[in-house]
Amino acid sequence: MVRIPLALALTCGLAVAGTAFAGGHAGNPAVSARKAHMQLYSFNLGILGAMAKGETEYNADAAAAAASNLAAVASLNQSAYWVPGTSSDDLPGESRAKPEIWQAGSTAAEIGMSFAEAAAALAAVAGDGKDAMAGAMGAVGKGCGDCHKAYRAPRN
């Protein structure tokens, strides 16, 4: 009685893991990691933004948690997935990272540092009320825009 469900569970578990493994490695792993990184920004910003826009009610704990996640992701060392050879020229249709990121005079790393500072500043005040949170989101949004303005290729 016990063995069949266990075997079934194992089989299912392996099948799911296999799919996830295949899915995660379908494209260039560095680009996939960057997209996952951006997705985590987007998800946590979505929680904060919905409160800022008034779509959901402000909740100090939820805001503090989302902002803290955002700051944690921003503080990750990303050097292993921003590697040369993965630009929009190298991987058209997959990567939207402009080659200028890796060229002389690139300010991408500095923008990343200021973004991490802005995210930390947001995390420090996100639980202090809706206005404090919404105010600190401005600098975070500016960081997104600064990098995307110069270094992200259009989608189409």
Binding site: Y41, S42, F43, L45, G46, G49, A52, M137, G138, G141, K142, C144, G145, D146, H148, K149, R152, P154
Partner: peptide, 15 residues
């Protein structure tokens, strides 16, 4: 803010 409804952000000239 530059944020789209799904919290991507404006890029290129629109930023």
């Amino acid at each position: 803010s530059g944020f789209t409804p799904d919290f991507d952000s404006a890029g290129g000239e629109m930023a």
